[in-house]
Computed example of a mutant assay.
Amino acid sequence: MPHWLAWLNVDRLGVIVALATAVSAVVYAHRQTVIAQGAQAEAKRSADAAEEQVRIADAAKAEAQRSAEAALKAVAMDARRDHHDYGASRVELENLERRESQGIPNVPSYIATVRNASPREFMYRARVYYTANSYSDLKSGTMRSGETVELHLGSPDVEYERLEMWLDGECSCDQPDGAEGHWQRSFLVPPAPRQPTRRVTVLR
């Protein structure tokens, strides 16, 4: 019988088994700790990645919101420019002249010529003001692009304050129509030029 086997008895065997079990438990616990730490690190990386994705998504959402707002502002700006540049601002008072009325000798009229320099067509109503609150309606109709209309204000001997026109037509802006129309144009009316002096030749 080997010497070391004689040394081994039940008590010592129990101690050895207990030590082996304890070592195995420590090794197992260490492995589980390493596994848990790895899982924890992976979970943290996943959480960080998820947080980064949320941050990127929030930034993209904010950028999309800014882009949408910028696009809306650009559309509104274009609409305002469209309202001004292609609207009634291009309806111009081209001429004011004293003219003899056709078919009625010696009855002159003060005539305003208005031109539509806009690429649009307008429906218009015109009136002439003598004072701030006194006026006469003149004419209404349609002005095509490039077309001129003549407005007979009345006698050139009358004092006029202004010629006023209200216009309607297609417009992309969001401005509400006024009580009289979408656009308003006003032109000051200066006194009519004096009638030329007629020369009279005296025969002797």
Rank of each mutant, 00 (worst) to 15 (best):
E121R: 07
S89A: 11
N95T: 08
R127M: 01
L96T: 07
A71H: 07
A18V: 09
V26F: 13
R144G: 11
D78K: 14
D137H: 06
E94L: 09
V17W: 03
A132V: 01
F122H: 00
F122I: 00
V107P: 06
D78Y: 07
E94N: 06
A117N: 14
V114I: 13
Q40W: 14
A18I: 04
S24P: 02
G141S: 02
D48W: 08
Y110E: 09
Q65R: 11
P105T: 12
D48H: 08
V75F: 09
V114W: 09
A57K: 06
R66Y: 00
A41N: 15
E121I: 03
R66C: 01
R66I: 01
M77H: 14
Q65F: 04
A71T: 10
A76M: 10
A132N: 04
N9Q: 06
K73W: 11
T131P: 04
A36T: 12
Y135I: 00
H83D: 09
L93M: 08
D78Q: 14
L19T: 03
I35T: 15
I111R: 08
A49D: 13
N106Y: 12
D58E: 11
Y110K: 05
N133T: 11
S24L: 13
D58M: 05
D85C: 08
D11G: 07
R99D: 08
T142I: 08
S46N: 14
N95K: 12
A64M: 03
D11M: 02
S109R: 15
D85K: 09
V17A: 11
M123A: 02
A59R: 05
A68Y: 06
A62I: 03
A70S: 05
